[in-house]
Design a protein around this nucleic acid. Structure first.
Lengths: 363, 363
DNA sequence: CTGTTAGCGCGTTCAC
DNA sequence: GTGAACGCGCTAACAG
C-alpha cells in the first residue's frame, strides 16, 4: 500500500461529520439534521440526496455531541448487587439481565452495568446518574439505593425502577415475582400429598426473598391449621451465592436428627440448596422422595436432570427483566407513574422429588 | 411544601455546572477545569477553595460535554453472541462477564452490553463504535466480527479484543482457555485409569470450542497409539445452549449400543451434557463410574453436587474476562500491540464420576 | 421548505 | 498561576 492509498485509507476511517454530508449534498447542516430526525419535514428530493450522501460517506452521528445538545443520553443503567452476575446454578440474575437487555435494546436504548458492592462502586453509580451519562436506572436486588454523602440515586431526577425487590413502599415502581404466594402454593402441594412436618432451608436472614418465601411457608401451614412448630428452620447465615454449601450444611443438620423427628418434606429457599441437599442426604442413605420430599425455588434448568428431578417454583426470570425494561421505557417516554408494583408469577413445576411420604415408618 | 420551597428543591436537584463552581469559588471555569484534572498545575489554596465549592454544590462533570470536548468516551462494549447471557449451568458467559466488568471498572471505564444475533443488532454494535459511544470493544465467542454494509467493527479505529475465541490469526488479540490441551490432559487421565474406548458427546459442529476439544481428545489417543476408531462420536447438531438436551440424546444413543460395544468412558464437550447424560443412563441401570466414567468441561459449580460428583475441566472463567479487560485497558492506555494470544489454562478437577472401568464384564 | 444563528458544558490554547 | 476566548458536533430557534 503506497502513501497515497494509506492517506485515503485513513480518511476512510475517520468518521465524517454532519458538515461533510451537508457539503456533499449541497445543503446546510441543519437540513441534514432534520432529514435524519424528521424525514417528514423536508422535501423528498433533497431528503434523498442527503440520505445518499450520508450513505456514501458512511455517516454516523456523533453520540456525545447529540447528547450534549439534547441534554440526555440513551443509556440505561442496571445497578447490580455485589459481584453477582454469577448467582448459583439458578442463574436468575443472568436470565433477568438478558430479558432486561433485550427489551431495552428493542426500545432503542443501550444498557450499561455496574456493581455496587463497594462504596466506590455505589458512588460511581450515583455519578453516572448525576453526570448525565445514564437516562434511567434499574436497581436489582439488595436493600439500599446507591448513595454517597448526601446524594442518593433517588435525587438524580431520572427514572428508577426496582427489579426483584419490592420498593414500592418507597415510591419506586417495582417488578417482582410472587415469592410469598408461590411458596404458599408449593407447600400446599406438599400438604396435599400428606406431609405434615417440614424442614425449611433458609437463605440469608433478613433478605427480601428469604423473608417472603418463609412467610409463604407459614401461610400454607396456617391454611390447614398447622402451627409453626410443624417446621424446623435451618440456615440463615449463608447468602444466596452460597446456596450449595447451604444445602450441604442443612443436610448434615437433617441427618443429625433422630429418625423419628425428621420432617418428611424439605422446603428450600433456592434450587442450589435443594440440589446439594438431595445429593448429601442420598449419599447418606436417605431416599428421595420416599423418605423426604424436596421442593426448590427458582426453576434452574439443571433441576430437571437431577436425580430425582427437582420439583421447584420456577421464576419467570426473563419476563421479570422484560417487564422492568418496559416500565423503564414507558417512563423514559414520558408516561405517567406506572403501577407501583408489578408481579410476574412463579409457577409450580412438579417433578419427582416430591411424593406422598411412604418409606420411613415401614422400614 | 410551598412554591418557594419547591423551586429551591428543583434547584437542588438540577446538576450544577462548572460555571456555578467557578462563581462560588471566585475563579474562572478554566481554573476549575484544571483543578480537577491537573491538581498539580494550580495553586494549592485556590485548589482547596474550588474543591470545597465543588463538594458543597455536589458538582459532577457532565459526561457528554467532556466526551465531546476530548473526543472519546469512557465506555467499553462487550459484544455478546446471540441472546446468550444465559448459557447452561456452566455459566461461563456470566462468569466471564463478571471478570470483565470488575476489571474494566477498576480501570475507570464503564461496560455496555450488546447482543449481535440479529443484523440490526450487529449494525448497532458498529454504530456504537463509529459514533464514538464506545472506546473499545470486547467480542465474545462466535465467528464473525460485527459488520454491516461495507463497514466492519475492524475499521472503527478503536481497540478490539477477542474473548473465548481465538482470532489472533486475524490480528485481533485474543484471550482463550487451552481447550485442546486441557481436553488432552483429561482424556490422558482416563487412559491412565485403563480406559481404551470412548464415547464423545460433541457440541455444535464447527464451533470453535467443539473443534478444539475434540482435537484434544484425538491428541490424547495418539499419545498412546490408539486410533480414532477408539471413539464413538455423537452429537454435533445441538448448540451449547442446548447442552442438557444434547446429553439426554447422547445417553439414548449410548443405551442403544449393545452392551459389549459400549465405551467405558464418556467425554463431554460441556458439563450440561455430562450432567444430563449421567442422569439418563443411571435411570436406565447404567452405573457411574463403574459401567461408564464421565468427564465434563467447564467446571460448573453444580457438578460437585451431582451424583456422582462430576470430574471436569474447569475453565477459569473470571480470569478469562479479567485478562481480556486488562489487555483492553492497556490498549486504551496507549500500549503497543499486546501478545496476539493469551491462554488462561483450564485445570482438571478430579471427582467421582471417573474411575477404573470395572463393572460390566463381571456381570 | 431551507439557511442562518446560537449555544449545550467542557478542555485547551494563548495571553496576561 | 490564572482568565478570556474559542470550538468539539449537533439541534432548535428564528427568519426568509
Amino acid at each position: 500500500m503506497d502513501k497515497h492509498a494509506q492517506a485515503a485509507d485513513k480518511a476512510w476511517h475517520s468518521s465524517p461529520r454532519m458538515t461533510d454530508v451537508a457539503k456533499l449534498a449541497g445543503v446546510a447542516t441543519s437540513t441534514v439534521s432534520r432529514a435524519l430526525a424528521n424525514p417528514g419535514r423536508v422535501n423528498e428530493e433533497t431528503r434523498r440526496r442527503i440520505a445518499a450522501a450520508a450513505e456514501q460517506l458512511g455517516y454516523i452521528p456523533n453520540t456525545a455531541a447529540r447528547n450534549l445538545r439534547v441534554g440526555r443520553s440513551t443509556i440505561v443503567l442496571a445497578a447490580l448487587p455485589g459481584p453477582s452476575m454469577i448467582f448459583g446454578a439458578s442463574q436468575i440474575i443472568p436470565a433477568v439481565l438478558q430479558g432486561l437487555a433485550s427489551t431495552v435494546a428493542e426500545g432503542g436504548f443501550d444498557l450499561i452495568f455496574s456493581n455496587r458492592n463497594s462504596p466506590a462502586a455505589a458512588r460511581h453509580v450515583v455519578d453516572l446518574a448525576f453526570g448525565g451519562t445514564v437516562r434511567g436506572v434499574v436497581v436489582l436486588g439488595a436493600a439500599d439505593l446507591p448513595a454517597y454523602g448526601s446524594r442518593s440515586l433517588a435525587d438524580a431526577g431520572i427514572p428508577v425502577v426496582s427489579l426483584l425487590t419490592d420498593r414500592s413502599a418507597a415510591g419506586i415502581p417495582s417488578v417482582v415475582t410472587n415469592d410469598r404466594a408461590a411458596m404458599r402454593e408449593g407447600v400446599l402441594h406438599l400438604i396435599a400429598l400428606d406431609h405434615r412436618s417440614f424442614f425449611y432451608i433458609a437463605g440469608e436472614s433478613g433478605n427480601y426473598h428469604e423473608v417472603e418465601r418463609f412467610s409463604g411457608l407459614l401461610d400454607a401451614l396456617a391454611v390447614v391449621g398447622l402451627s409453626d412448630r410443624a417446621v424446623i428452620r435451618h440456615g440463615g447465615h449463608l447468602g444466596f451465592n452460597e446456596g450449595f454449601q447451604n444445602g450441604v450444611e442443612a443436610a448434615h443438620a437433617y441427618l443429625a436428627l433422630a429418625l423419628a423427628r425428621r420432617p418428611t418434606a424439605a422446603v428450600c429457599c433456592a434450587d442450589d440448596a435443594a440440589i446439594s441437599f438431595i445429593g448429601t442426604v442420598r449419599s447418606n442413605g436417605v431416599a428421595v422422595p420416599e423418605d423426604v420430599s424436596i421442593i426448590g425455588f427458582d426453576g434452574a434448568a439443571v433441576g430437571a436432570f437431577c436425580v430425582p428431578p427437582l420439583t421447584t417454583l420456577e421464576q419467570p426470570a426473563e419476563d421479570l427483566g422484560a417487564q422492568a425494561a418496559r416500565i423503564m421505557l414507558d417512563l423514559l417516554g414520558g408516561a405517567a407513574m406506572p403501577a407501583p408494583k408489578t408481579t410476574v408469577p412463579s409457577r409450580l413445576l412438579l417433578r419427582a422429588s416430591t411424593a406422598t411420604p411412604s418409606g420411613r415408618s415401614e422400614r
